[in-house]
Design a protein around this nucleic acid. Structure first.
Lengths: 189, 189
DNA sequence: CATGTAAACTAACAATTGTTAGTTAGGTTG
DNA sequence: CAACCTAACTAACAATTGTTAGTTTACATG
């Protein structure tokens, strides 16, 4: 029975507002109003608006990094690794759909943590690229443009947050299975 | 030899700034500074900040709608129609990469034109859905989840604006070809 | 009961926001 | 030359922004 601290409540509320209008268009008074308090009261729990954004984005980015580390340390085949990445995205996005909006659209408003975030993202992409290139070498993947594969897969996975909320009937496991099929084998018969 | 009006210059400048920081975080003074004039002078050419956004988004949305109409009116197979859609996205995005960022991320800041935009987008998605479902019926496409196919394809196409600028070596025709292959036949061997 | 603390409040701040009004300089047209 | 137009300018506005200072309230602990 996890008791949510007031700070966590503020971050959760902000996450939902940031998803709807983006970081810049949401004011501290907006956040306070939803919480039922005055804007100044927020500062009993957080240091700045920037801290809220940082918290949302960095914690998610680190979740991805942690998940990727496990995958890279496994002895799975390239294809199994890619499947695990799909599952990782579905899992994290299902649990924090709103936060994924900030991760995708508001990262450029980070100040102190911008460089750190960019490094995490770059490393993450490099890992997927490595898996794909390995898969081509091993003859598991088609020998076409690896960058296009990487881009297509990552685009789909990064957009999940837009799509998951409207498909609540589909459970994460089922979704991951379907996504895997489409991403790996395409749509043509 | 197209002569650009001052208004078009303002819109072009704004488009680039909106891409970098999003509509809300860009001020009229930001735009004016890049143009080398004062913020008040912008109002000799445009009515409001909102008008700039509207102009960027609606003109792009209508381009997509026009392209889709041609595709729907053709007698092509489902697969050929999907290929044409890929080409449509690559074409439009190559010609106005920055604008696509606003289309994707700032549409919710539209005021007067919001409903119109949403209708265009919904119709567009419905058209693709229709093509996919037809393709399944005709046994041209795999009989798996049509929504997942639609989502995966659209996600990739909508994200093109992020990816195209860093791959300027790849010409649009080549890119469309590669994308087609990956989206239709997947990546697995 | 006295004290301490968590979490709210009011009031205000300096800066920034989109926008308006009125003016001016320079070039084109009658 | 006179009239006009385009496109810039200065100055200011009312509203909104993130944030701070100082105060009050309610509750828990000793």
């Amino acid at each position: 029975m996890k008791v949510e601290t007031r700070k966590e409540e503020i971050i959760k509320t902000s996450t939902i507002l940031f998803q709807k209008k983006g970081y810049s268009a949401v004011t501290m008074r907006d956040i306070a109003k939803v919480m039922g308090i005055k804007a100044a009261s927020l500062y009993n729990h957080i240091d700045s608006k920037q801290e809220i954004l940082s918290n949302i984005i960095i914690s998610l980015a680190e979740e991805f990094t942690d998940g990727m580390r496990v995958i890279m340390n496994s002895n799975d085949s390239s294809i199994d690794k890619l499947s695990s990445i799909v599952k990782l995205h579905v899992d994290i996005t299902s649990r924090n759909t709103s936060g994924m909006a900030s991760l995708n659209n508001d990262w450029m408003h980070l100040k102190e943590d911008l460089d750190y975030y960019l490094k995490l993202r770059l490393d993450y992409e490099d890992n997927i690229r490595q898996i794909i290139e390995q898969g081509i070498l091993n003859d598991q993947l088609q020998d076409s443009n690896a960058e296009v594969m990487l881009f297509s897969m990552l685009s789909t996975l990064r957009s999940l947050y837009i799509w998951i909320p409207s498909k609540e009937d589909l459970n994460p496991l089922e979704l991951a299975k379907n996504l895997n099929k489409v991403l790996l084998t395409g749509i043509i018969k």
